[in-house]
Design a binder for these strands. Structure first.
Length: 585
RNA sequence: GCGCUUGUAGCUCAACUGGAUAGAGCACCAGCCUUCUAAGCUGGGGGUCGCAGGUUCGAGUCCUGCCAAGCGUACCA
């Protein structure tokens, strides 16, 4: 409907151009809006206000000209000029009933569109280091990413969801060493656990499975392990230097077995993450291994291209990338003076790999603390000769976690964190997902755990689900009370739906496809949440104002068709959010 | 210091990307269950859209400068 009106206005403008009212080179974008106030009709456009100046006339006079030139359309009841020069459209009520037929015909597909057909989109999200279970901070990215993926799928895009597994690098070495030290404790050794190692209980669990499968094969005396090491931080040393020394010691003492310990830790945690996300309703098409980029030479290849494009140089024994020439604030190291590639080097190779796979759009969903990283990744793609504009980085804020009045410090290393799994156990998957996606992603979020847990019944997700359950209940009551349903009879008598609440519902239902399109193209799932809350409000209001199961066969069936459509749209929307649509509550 | 993000009701957040009288939910006050689920509905109070300029028919939205908060500013990931 919106698009039809845009077309009509465009036609009118073309005619006015022919009549010489506008210059021919004027190509305004016609913008049709739904009105906020019913007194302003159903739709409005500000086109006359926009064009008054270039046409050298006043807006109201121009609006008049546009209206008289407008092609006739039976869906339009009347057109008015209002305010400074708005053109308001009042639609024919009969045209509004059409939406119920559309919803019935399209069912679960209602609201989907084809705007993305033929475009391959890759969405990479969460990608947390497999050094521990996911915590509540990762939950927002998981919920947001999966809903963005669902929305893009619904609008016709070919969506590929991916998790980048950081299965290489220093953090994983710290984990492997932590596991090994807990393993040594389980073997009876005693020592002070390093301050910078991973202290969570899950590390002990992994060490225990190591004992069960490998006995004391990897055991060494603590005297050997800790011989001639620098001091840890509590003793006045540097915790980073200390842990690095321990990592070297582990590799030296374990030899080839180090890889075994490493992989047991990695696989244990990764499979836990996979289960956790699957239970959260977040699935992936691919788990992409960082280590594979090292093994297959992708990093060397990427660096070789950067070098041949003259973007690398050597300084202080390290290899640097001239990112400052391409919009970054300073140059970045890609190969450390110890010969090891940096995390950034594998990320260059990874993003290049993504583009080589032929995606038209790359969406990276990152925690906002990584924002400083954007310019250097884009610089790298540019330097590789790739199209860096295909990369869209969406930042998800996670400001602060509160437990009542107290701020909770979140650190995977210290083991003091609330896991995503704990959150799901407390508030449930539906409420957790709804809560995470409720706000704009860039918005800082105060996540009060006490509130989310203790007041879960006040969570707005129940309000929306309740509307769905109520419709289902009405249909159950239908047969219990001896009424019959006749869909065709209802369709033939939709004109009986003249109450204010009913026309309001029809308008809201008609907005659904617009909301999906907008939420998808803007990557703003919260728009869908807001919409569903409005639809639920319209329904609850209607429910309280009118009886659906009335004696009149025509009116009853018309109303049943209307609320059936409401149920369908609620279910479709909740489904995109990965939230269930209960038939009873 | 510099960069990114944010600042809207007591609290948590919206506002169709520059439109008409800035809206919801909590919280507070007053009402509604012999009728389809009261996890609901109706009504009420509550605002200098951080501050000051600017752009124009029109600004919460755009530009500039301040103020405040979070994050970043590694040969960590």
């Amino acid at each position: 409907m919106k698009k039809q009106l845009e077309n009509l206005i465009s036609q009118a403008i073309t005619k006015l151009k022919e009549q010489g009212v506008f210059a021919n080179d004027l190509n305004p974008t016609v913008h049709i809006e739904r009105t906020r106030d019913v007194a302003h009709g159903d739709f409005a456009t500000n086109i006359a206000l926009m064009l008054a100046k270039p046409a050298k006339t006043n807006p109201r006079q121009l609006a008049e000209q546009i209206i008289t030139t407008l092609p006739t359309n039976e869906a339009i009841l009347k057109v008015e000029i209002a305010g400074a020069g708005f053109i308001n459209f009042f639609m024919n009520p009969n045209a509004q009933y059409q939406i119920i037929g559309d919803i019935q015909a399209e069912g679960r597909l209602f609201g989907q569109s084809q705007i993305g057909v033929g475009k391959k989109v890759q969405v990479e999200f969460v990608s947390a280091n497999p050094t521990g279970p996911l915590h509540v901070g990762h939950g927002r990215g998981a919920a947001y990413g999966s809903v963005v993926g669902n929305l893009l799928t619904a609008t016709g895009f070919d969506v590929h969801r991916e998790y980048y597994v950081n299965d290489a690098g220093r953090q994983m070495d710290i984990l492997a060493t932590s596991v090994w030290l807990r393993y040594l404790e389980a073997c009876g050794e005693t020592f002070i656990f390093p301050s910078n190692a991973y202290r969570g209980d899950y590390v002990r669990d992994i060490a225990q499975t190591l004992v069960e499968h490998h006995g004391k094969n990897f055991a060494h005396s603590s005297a050997t392990v800790f011989a001639d090491l620098p001091l840890d931080e509590p003793e006045g040393g540097d915790k980073e230097i200390y842990i690095d020394a321990l990592i070297s010691r582990a590799k030296q003492l374990l030899g080839y077995d180090y890889r075994v310990v490493f992989d047991v830790g990695l696989n244990d945690i990764l499979s836990d993450i996979k289960d956790d996300l699957a239970e959260f309703g977040t699935t992936y098409d691919q788990w992409f291994s960082e280590r594979s980029l090292m093994d297959d030479g992708s990093i060397e290849k990427a660096l070789a291209v950067l070098k041949s494009n003259n973007y690398l140089y050597e300084k202080d024994g390290a290899i640097w990338f001239k990112s400052s020439e391409l919009g970054d604030e300073k140059d970045r190291v890609v190969i450390r003076d110890n010969g090891q590639p940096t995390y950034f080097a594998s990320d260059i190779a990874y993003h290049w790999n993504k583009l080589e796979r032929g995606f038209d759009v790359l969406i990276d969903i990152w925690g906002a603390d990584h924002h400083g990283y954007i310019p250097r990744v884009k610089a790298a793609l540019k330097a590789l000769g790739a199209d860096e504009t295909k990369l869209n980085v969406l930042l998800v804020q996670f400001a602060s976690l509160w437990r009542g009045e107290e701020k909770v410090s979140m650190s995977t290393r210290s083991g003091e964190f609330v896991t995503l799994r704990e959150l799901r156990d407390e508030v449930g998957r539906d409420a957790a997902r709804f809560f995470y996606v409720m706000r704009r992603s860039e918005q800082h979020m105060d996540f009060d755990l006490e509130l989310a847990k203790s007041k879960s019944n006040e969570n707005p997700v129940f309000y929306v689900q309740y509307a769905h359950a109520r419709v289902c209940s009405v249909f159950r009551q239908l047969t219990e009370k001896g009424f019959t349903q006749d869909v065709a009879l209802g369709m033939a008598n939709l004109a009986e739906l003249t109450a204010e609440h009913e026309t309001a519902l029809l308008t809201t239902l008609a907005r659904y496809p617009e909301v999906i399109e907008r939420a998808a193209t803007q990557y703003e799932p919260h728009l869908l949440i807001n919409y569903l809350r409005e639809l639920a409000t319209d329904f609850h209001t209607y429910y309280n104002a009118h009886q659906f199961l009335v004696e009149s066969d025509t009116l009853r069936n018309a109303r049943l068709n209307l609320i059936g459509a409401v149920r369908q749209v609620l279910a479709n929307g909740l489904n995109l959010l990965g939230i269930s649509s209960p038939v009873a509550m």
